[in-house]
């Protein structure tokens, strides 16, 4: 499923003194199979954008748009696969089955008595009417999801989610979303509040899902290392607009613009920059492995030159 957004705008509390423009004419296309990153400072509109993807925030219905169109400007478009999200009749529940969304700090949405019941919540909600999955099927799917997030179902399925540690809770919450095998998985700051090891584990998990479980993964983050390390492409949001969109390899080549937007730069990009100032040019894709290989390659070259 391909995500196409054109001229998307959104205003919170429209027509009140508290009105705040969160999205301003955003156009983006996310291809199927991508590991897409959305970067931006707090309040840049990135979370607002992803909440549109499964219809939690809606754009004005097509009827209203037609009326408006006579007046001025272009009309917004948002399509996810074959779903047209600007259409009022769209089956948003069917859409949500295909677009799984993991919110910030998802561990705070847990509610059931056991891990198994909590993970099954989405599965039962999305079951078509009259075709309730059997207990067997539910159990199988839940166990599979728990295994996928690295929790041993035998040990955890019957536990209360509230007696788990923070990291384990987050895994359970993620399992509760991927259990329906959505085609697109959207995660809002999936690694926020975790220690470095936990962060890496979560990102490794996402790579595991990407491809088999979910064709497309979209992550919202302000951790540039995370984006550089993982994403195939990324968009930079600032004040509701998309200011740049490129693969990380190109995105982090020019670091001045990012800095001027108040964004951090990945550690690897900083190293490359510092080396460049000292006259050593390293060409790499700004992942840690890529950097190490480039540096080692250079060292090997030097070594050969020295021998010669």
């Amino acid at each position: 499923m391909r995500i196409v957004a054109e001229h998307l705008s959104y205003i919170y509390n429209a027509r009140t003194p508290f009105a705040a423009k969160a999205l301003d004419d955003v156009s983006l296309t996310i291809e199927e199979g991508e590991f897409y990153g959305i970067i931006g400072q707090t309040g840049s509109g990135k979370s607002t954008f992803v909440q549109h993807l499964n219809g939690l925030l809606r754009l004005p219905s097509s009827l209203k748009r037609k009326k408006k169109k006579k007046g001025k400007g272009v009309s917004p478009v948002l399509r996810v696969g074959e779903f047209d999200l600007s259409e009022k009749k769209t089956d948003f529940r069917a859409l949500r089955k295909h677009v799984g969304m993991v919110f910030q700090y998802p561990e705070y949405q847990l509610f059931a008595e056991t891990v198994e019941k909590d993970v099954a919540f989405g599965l039962l909600n999305f079951a078509e009417k009259g075709k309730k999955p059997s207990d067997e099927e539910v159990k199988r799917a839940v166990w599979e999801a728990l295994e996928a997030v690295g929790l041993d179902p035998k040990e955890y399925a019957e536990k209360s989610p509230f007696e788990l540690s923070g990291g384990q809770k987050r895994r359970v919450a993620i399992a509760g979303v991927i259990v329906t095998k959505p085609e697109i998985l959207v995660l809002d700051e999936p690694a926020a509040g975790l220690d470095p090891l936990g962060k890496r584990e979560v990102m490794d998990l996402l790579h595991k899902f990407h491809g088999d479980w979910c064709k497309t993964v979209v992550i919202v983050s302000h951790d540039m290392d995370e984006i550089a390390e993982n994403c195939t492409r990324a968009a930079v949001f600032s004040e509701g607009k998309v200011v740049k969109e490129a693969p990380p390899k190109e995105l982090f080549r020019e670091t001045e613009e990012l800095s001027s937007l108040g964004l951090d730069i990945p550690l690897v990009a900083k190293l490359c920059e510092a080396l460049k100032e000292r006259g050593v040019k390293i060409e790499c894709d700004f992942t840690e492995d890529g950097f190490i290989n480039a540096v080692l390659g250079r060292a090997a070259l030097r070594g050969k030159e020295g021998q010669a």
């Binding site: 499964n54 939690l56 949500r96 919110f103 949405q109 989405g122 909600n125 509760g176």
Partner: peptide, 9 residues
């Protein structure tokens, strides 16, 4: 919103 995203009605 989180529960809606998990299909809650």
């Amino acid at each position: 919103n989180a529960q809606k995203a998990r299909g809650a009605d």
